[in-house]
Design a binder for these strands. Structure first.
Lengths: 208, 208
DNA sequence: GTCACCAGTGAACTGCTGATCACATTCGAA
DNA sequence: TTCGAATGTGATCAGCAGTTCACTGGTGAC
């Protein structure tokens, strides 16, 4: 009930611009090196103006990391619920993660490095979300790798994701399609499964 | 000429203790969250006492990261110069990296996350050392993967190392030997080569 | 037109933490 | 024993960066 918020006036998506600015700056220079003034400048306002949109500096980081976890988690949920079998599901999970890594490169890099700088409680919450996400992979991998114990499957998943995310920390200079292809191969190699045909698993992914 | 330094008096290896303390604390809580007081306390002295051993907080981090790069680089140099062929050399490189990852776990984790918090010049220097190390791998991989272009080989090396280092960021609970074995498999899988027999490549590694 | 309100500004505050310094203590050498 | 350099201590400094706040100006509703 009631009108749906009078919505902002000056710049309707200033909040989003702040997040993008923060993601890029923090990815390049690190959370503590970047000041509120820097983020504000990049977003077109003054440092203290950020407090009209976020409660604190930490709140920006939280919003940022939650955002990237949202993308990963929602993708995984869709794939797991819609895939016809485990092989296709696993390949789709791999490819979706690669998509996010290439698309939200800086945010994912920030996630990987700056979790420490969160207040205890928020850190725990995000860690929990991350564990859930990993668990989605493990569930799908388990029937395909009966030769591995539970902890070993989990290790394989971490390694596969580690291989994919290695691309966050240097510039390969390769064309994006080729890059995705190679990461796909190597992630599957870590998991010890053969990639499902692309056409089939890609139907489960979000295109945008 | 001249006597080899009068050596310290109170605690001969206080400097080393500071480094160890810093490595553990920073690995767990992050560079900025850890204060000089914390590091000092862990090393058995008061915060300001650290300045008898290091010029600044950054100097501790630099010494720490240089130390881990020393281990990686010296291992790689020895392997590359002594290996009878490329397959054995590459497997030895993989296994040496795994050894360092398991042995200097916290320091390597710190390296991966806290490079940002270094003064520009030092950061560049360390990045350069890291590139050299990667280049050692690429040189050895190149003749074994002629199907890959130059940048593609480099990507494979990064992915393999990424897979290995994924173990730095969660506790698998696996026995160390089994853990090393699985990481070995997956790193080789990323590189697209079959592991050389363990006995042969391990002769090239430092045992301690 | 006017009125309330929201986004943005800039100055000022504050707490924290890395760094300094003068002083105490301890050990090794002469 | 005595002297001096190496360590360690506690108080203090200094500056940065996150946060607060009073104020301004433009916007949309009535």
């Amino acid at each position: 009930m009631a009108a749906p918020r009078p919505r902002s006036q000056r710049d309707p998506d200033r909040r989003e611009r702040i997040l993008v600015a923060a993601a890029q700056l923090v990815a390049r220079r690190g959370y503590h090196t970047v000041g509120m003034a820097d983020i504000g400048a990049e977003a077109g306002i003054v440092g203290s103006g950020i407090y009209r949109h976020f409660d604190s500096k930490a709140a920006i980081l939280i919003a940022l990391l939650d955002q990237v976890m949202d993308r990963l988690q929602s993708g995984a949920a869709r794939i797991v619920s819609a895939a016809p079998d485990d092989e296709i599901a696993l390949s789709a999970l791999v490819r979706d993660h690669i998509r996010v890594a290439l698309q939200d490169r800086s945010v994912l890099a920030v996630y990987h490095r700056e979790v420490h700088n969160l207040p205890e409680e928020e850190r725990r919450r995000l860690r929990r979300r991350q564990r859930h996400y990993i668990e989605d992979w493990v569930h799908v991998l388990a029937p395909l790798r009966r030769d591995l114990a539970d902890g070993e499957q989990r290790l394989a998943v971490h390694a596969a994701i580690g291989a994919i995310q290695s691309t966050l920390f240097f510039r390969s200079g390769l064309a994006e399609a080729r890059l995705a292809e190679l990461l796909d191969e190597m992630a599957h190699a870590c998991l010890g499964v053969t990639p499902a045909p692309r056409e089939r698993s890609e139907l489960l992914m979000t295109k945008y």
